[in-house]
Write a protein that binds this DNA or RNA. Structure first.
Lengths: 193, 193
DNA sequence: CCTATAAAAGAGTGATCAGTCTGTCAATAT
DNA sequence: ATATTGACAGACTGATCACTCTTTTATAGG
């Protein structure tokens, strides 16, 4: 098969794209991304057919990375609310805060890519798959509460939004990080339970 | 003073920018916006020095429009929570839902412009001013509750996020609009009270 | 080792962009 | 009425863009 594509090079491009897009937004040029990855202008297009394809892949990658840092400890079992769903959700909550703290560039890049018109509905649907467990957990949390008629998408979106708000609060007042994290989680629990 | 600038033309450009950016995102060209406004390429730049300036003005305008539809009925008086803060917040909640329903293009455009790197922190701070009353109301709502230590920015962001989530739910299931609106508001109240 | 194949580099390409320039025309002040 | 000013249209400009093409080079299979 002649010369194979290099997984590390593909990864370099992704990593560079995350940084460059976090800094400059979606408008960043493929040339800039390529240079940041140490890859020629042309080579970038042997790994991604178009810029739109790159953005779609990036979206999937970022969502997947976030999912692996977030869902790893969530058991899929159908634990009743009384017996630990709250604690499970708390784990997810802190995992997401941890992701945002440890991967700030990924978070910024995801915020940019998420609003891109180049990211298709198909891609968005695909990216939601790794969160099936989290959605199931959210479902269990609200099943008997005041939000029993709300949709899973509503809850998922709210969790993300509340994470964002919490992260912002922590950024403004870092010494109160733990307090904000608890306040945020309690608010989430009150809202959805 | 020779020939004065036309307020209606300036407004045409703004309106066109809202539509074009809602459809195409921030990447939309000034030429496209000008054409949609029925204004020549050059004329656009007599009203806005640069594209960045246009985006900043657009952000201010959109935030202001939303504020006027949202804050008009919120009394600034320091009503105690027990005597109607909940009802005041409910008014704001439905006003925001109304804005989102009646001005979908403005909402889409705002979502795009909000993430633009061209919109400065100064602009963002300025745009927050018309919401002082709403923030004060939110402050009163949470003053004695579990979120008494959270920041106003946190609450404001949460309200917007929950409006977004509610709008999305309504879009998916329009026949249950009223139900979703109530569920969303109750969740908000539980979260922040 | 040799050949086939595809990756890689980077110059090249046409399109498009934000912003400028020039000539024209409309509104205002006198 | 006329002179002055600046809005206006739209051609123009240089930069930049996504993407391609050509040549070179690395690697896999025989």
């Amino acid at each position: 098969m002649a010369r194979p594509k290099s997984d590390t090079k593909r990864n370099d491009i992704m990593t560079a794209a995350i940084r460059v897009i976090a800094e400059q937004g979606i408008g960043a040029s493929t040339a800039t991304i390529g240079k940041a990855a140490g890859v020629s202008n042309g080579a970038l297009f042997t790994y991604f057919e178009t810029k739109a394809a790159l953005l779609n892949q990036l979206y999937l990658e970022l969502k997947a990375r976030m999912a692996t840092m977030t869902t790893v400890d969530v058991p899929g079992a159908n634990v009743p609310v009384e017996n630990g769903a709250r604690e499970q959700l708390r784990l997810v909550w802190y995992a997401m805060l941890g992701w945002a703290r440890e991967r700030p560039l990924e978070r910024l890049a995801l915020a940019q890519v998420s609003v891109s018109k180049d990211v298709t509905d198909e891609t968005r649907a695909l990216a939601a798959k790794p969160y099936a467990e989290v959605e199931a957990l959210l479902d269990r949390c609200r099943a008997k509460g005041a939000m029993r008629d709300a949709s899973p998408a509503f809850l998922a979106k709210m969790v993300l939004a509340m994470v964002d708000a919490t992260i912002d609060s922590i950024a403004v007042e870092p010494e109160a990080a733990d307090k904000h994290a608890e306040i945020g989680f309690d608010a989430l629990w009150r809202a959805i339970h």
